[in-house]
Design a protein around this nucleic acid. Structure first.
Lengths: 205, 205
DNA sequence: GGAAAAGCTTGACAGTCGTCAAGACACGGG
DNA sequence: CCCGTGTCTTGACGACTGTCAAGCTTTTCC
């Protein structure tokens, strides 16, 4: 019986993978079940054998997506012993994922946007957003710890800032701008210098 | 003859309005020409009388959208004579548009996202993004001028930061979070305090 | 007033969509 | 061997899509 559910879970994961691939290539608006099936080894009918409907399938995908993303910087956080090391490692991975996986990232932004229109996605999307926020905060708070300076903005704000920078960089990367990654690194460096600064006078006002 | 083109332009604008409304309600993925026509006084066939195809129609809409948005804060910039006035006016308008026009904003994010997948939208979207960046920069640079302190980040970075904050707030607003607007104002205030600070020691490193 | 032009509607076309029922295939236990 | 069960394919359904041609209505102009 365990074997049965394992098999079933594996197949679901396989189909979820094909779905993620399709979504990342075509975007939500043009992703159809038949197109997904063509990115897998099966026919379009099997999708309704493993998933209730299209929303169920995509929801499952979104959850799977989360697992991959959320640990991206954990290794860097775990091994870095100086602020400079941590910053360099983070910037490296940031640029790397921007250049190597832009399709995966646009898929995420597409789904998050879809959640603005379709309530069925909202809960899962919000959960992933929260996970990503924690991921970013692990990096930033560790950085602050190594610097012995508390961050000057909240976790939620910090995430929004990084997300905005990354999204602009992604737009440029997908438009073919060769400087997108380098400029992202520079911008992040500049912003971090402001919000997790070396010791300085407190801001008045 | 001028009268002809005026009439034609007016009708195009009218249909573009119906398109914007439909897009803001349903999102790009579920917006069809028949649905657009139902949001106007005409039948679906007329869309092909005034626009070559769907892409042409939506592209035209996007350009129209730009005109409305881009002057949102100009009045505030023109009238404010102190930093506090400018900041308060900006935060007011920011919260107001978040609460009153969330559908229009999700439409913009949806189309910008679509441009990650469809090259046909890319140029127009990039142009609007640049316009919005200039809009934000007019506010920030004026603020810095009134404070007699240069901003510590570039125009592009500043826009990305605001955009990230606004997008997070929009997600929360659309999910029904009653604190979305207030938290956005607080976050923007906090960030501005970091990147356009009152005089302080330069950041080392 | 009547013809020409512009504006708009209607209906059809070839596709595609999500969904699902019917049946084919594999496979292990009687 | 056959039967039952889990797995997968096939083909069909009604609905919906963008597009466009044919024709209707209104306006314009002589």
């Amino acid at each position: 019986m365990d074997e049965r559910v394992d098999k079933s879970a594996a197949r679901r994961a396989e189909l979820a993978g094909a779905t993620l691939k399709t979504l990342s290539e075509l975007g939500y608006a043009r992703t159809s079940l038949r197109e997904i099936a063509q990115n897998s080894d099966f026919s379009h009918g099997v999708l309704h054998y493993y998933f209730r409907d299209k929303v169920d399938l995509i929801t499952h995908c979104v959850r799977e997506y989360k697992a991959v993303c959320v640990t991206r910087y954990d290794q860097v956080v775990a091994t870095a012993t100086t602020p400079a090391q941590l910053q360099a490692g983070f910037l490296d991975k940031l640029a790397q994922t921007l250049v190597e996986e832009p399709h995966m990232h646009r898929l995420w932004y597409d789904l998050r946007n879809q959640s603005m229109f379709e309530e069925s996605f909202r809960a899962d999307v919000a959960a992933i957003d929260a996970s990503l926020e924690r991921m970013v905060w692990r990096v930033v708070s560790r950085f602050a710890e190594l610097l012995d300076t508390p961050p000057r903005v909240s976790s939620a704000t910090m995430y929004a800032l990084f997300d905005g920078l990354f999204q602009q960089a992604l737009l440029r990367q997908l438009a073919g701008d060769p400087d997108a990654a380098a400029d992202l690194q520079a911008a992040v460096t500049s912003v971090v210098a402001q919000v997790v600064p070396l010791e300085r006078e407190p801001v008045a006002g």
